[in-house]
Write a protein that binds this DNA or RNA. Structure first.
Lengths: 243, 243
DNA sequence: CGCCTGCGTATTGTCGACAATATGGAAAAT
DNA sequence: ATTTTCCATATTGTCGACAATACGCAGGCG
C-alpha cells in the first residue's frame, strides 16, 4: 500500500550487497514516487475533492524537499487530478456532476472502442486474464464482497482494453479511469441494487470470447451507461464548498 | 509567436501604469509559459523528435533557473510530448509509425464523437465559427497556400469538437491533436495530391449544418482515415536514431 | 455599523549551490 | 590491436534559503 519512501532508511551495510549494476532495476524517480503517493490518496478518497494540498506537510511526512513535490503536483495537474491555482496552491480536483457525465461519455466510447479492437487483436494470454477476472468477479459477487467486486470489475474492463494492443488507447482510457475512480468506487460501495449491472458481465465476456467486436462495443457502452444511471444519485456530494 | 519571457524586460515606469488590480489578468505562471514555449518548438519542428532537451541552455536563453524548466518538462512528459529518461535527461518524443497509427485511431474516434455531440448541442456562434473556418479553408485551398490551409483545417476540426460542449472531450482531443500535430503539418506541406481530402470538407460542413450526427461521425472518421493513408508515406522519417 | 486600509504571517515561487549519476576518453592491461 | 579500467567532465536530481504573493485580522475611517 504505502510507499517506503524515506531515503534515509539504511539497510545495514547494504552498500555492497546491492551494487549499482545496470541489471538492477533502477529505482523510480522520486518525483514519480511522490506523484503515485498523492494520486493513490486522491483516488482512494484519503484526500477529498476540493481539499487543499500544502507542500510543507508532505515535505515533512515524506522527508523530502518541496522541489520534487512541486514537480509531482504539476504531473497530477496535467492529469487533471488536482487543480493548481497560481500563487494559491493546489486543490484536489472536484468535478461537478456535469463534468463527470462528460467524462463518462468519453470513457464509455473509449471502452467500447477498446473492446472492439480487442476482438481483433487480443492475445490468448490476455483473453485468459479477462476470463480469470470474470471468475473473480462472480466469486466476489456471490460473496457480496463489494471491495473485491470493484477490484475485479476494474481489472476485467482494463484487461479488455489492454487486449486492443493500442498503447495510446490504454493510456488515455486509464487516465480517464483514474479521474472517475473515486466516484465509481463510492458508487459501488453505496448503491443498493448492484445485481443488475453485475449480470451484464456474462454477455460482455461472451461477446469478447466470440470476438464479436461491434456487439461488444455496444454492450460495453450500454453497461457503463447503466452503471452510471445507478450511480448518479450517489454523486450528489458537493464535498468541500466553502465561503 | 515567441514568448516575451525575460522578466527583466522593464517597460519604462510601468509599475504604476499596470497596477495589480484583481481585474488585471494574472500573468501566466512561469512554469506554464516555459511549457508552452517548449511545446511550440516541438510541434513546429524546431525541436526534432528524438532530440535531447538540456536544461541549462534553456535556462540561459530564457533567463530563468532550472527549477521551473524541470516542472515544465514534467508537464510535457505527462502530455507524452517528451520522454524523460531518469538521470539521463529529456528527449522529444519520437513515436513510430505504429504508435502514430494507434493515436490516429483514437483521435478519429474522438473527432467523430465530437462531431456527433456537436450536432446536438453546438451553439449558433460555434456553428458560425466553423462556417467561417470552412470559408478560410476554401480560400487557402484555391490560393494553394498550404500553411493557411493547414491552419484553417485545424480550426475547422477543433471548432466542431468545441461545439460538443464536452470539456473533457475537447481537452483529450486537443492533447492528441498536439501529439499528431507535427506529423500532420509535415504531411500537409509535403503530399502531392491534397485536393481529394479538401473536397470532403464540403460534405462534413453540410452534415454539421444539417445536424446529422451519425452521418457527420462517419464522415469525420472516414476523412481522417483518408488523410492518414495519404500521409503515411511522408511519415517514414525515423529522425534521430544514433548508435 | 460596515467597509476600507495596512501590516504580520503563512504559503507558494524562484533561485543558486551542492550531491548523485551518467558520459566520454585516456591510459593501462591483455 | 582490442578491451577494460579509471578518471575528468557534463548533466540531472535534490536541497535549503530567500523572494513574491496571498490571507487574516486589527485598527481606522466614512
Amino acid at each position: 500500500m504505502s510507499l517506503t519512501l524515506a531515503p534515509d532508511g539504511q539497510s545495514p551495510a547494504s552498500d555492497e550487497a546491492v551494487p549499482r549494476l545496470s541489471l538492477t532495476v533502477a529505482a523510480q524517480p522520486l518525483t514519480q514516487q511522490i506523484a503515485n503517493h498523492i494520486r493513490d490518496q486522491i483516488i482512494h478518497d484519503g484526500l477529498k475533492p476540493g481539499e487543499r494540498i500544502r507542500e510543507q506537510p508532505i515535505s515533512e511526512q515524506l522527508r523530502v524537499s518541496r522541489t520534487p513535490i512541486r514537480e509531482a503536483l504539476q504531473i497530477l495537474a496535467t492529469e487533471r487530478l488536482v487543480d493548481i491555482l497560481p500563487n494559491r496552491g493546489a486543490l484536489v480536483a472536484n468535478p461537478g456532476v456535469e463534468d463527470l457525465r462528460g467524462m463518462l461519455k468519453v470513457y464509455s466510447m473509449l471502452d467500447g472502442l477498446g473492446g472492439e479492437l480487442a476482438c481483433l487483436s487480443a492475445q490468448p494470454v490476455q483473453v485468459a486474464e479477462v476470463e480469470r477476472q470474470y471468475n473473480l468477479l462472480q466469486v466476489a459477487f456471490e460473496a457480496k464482497d463489494r471491495s473485491a467486486y470493484f477490484q475485479a470489475n476494474q481489472a476485467f474492463h482494463l484487461g479488455i482494453v489492454a487486449g486492443s494492443g493500442n498503447p495510446t488507447l490504454v493510456e488515455i482510457h486509464g487516465q480517464l479511469n483514474l479521474r472517475l475512480y473515486r466516484t465509481r468506487y463510492l458508487a459501488v460501495m453505496q448503491i443498493k441494487d448492484w445485481t443488475s449491472a453485475a449480470y451484464q458481465h456474462a454477455d460482455i465476456l461472451k461477446a469478447f470470447l466470440d470476438r464479436d467486436g461491434p456487439l461488444l462495443n455496444r454492450l460495453l457502452q450500454a453497461h457503463l451507461g447503466f452503471a452510471w444511471r445507478q450511480a448518479e444519485g450517489v454523486v450528489e456530494t458537493p464535498a468541500l464548498a466553502s465561503a
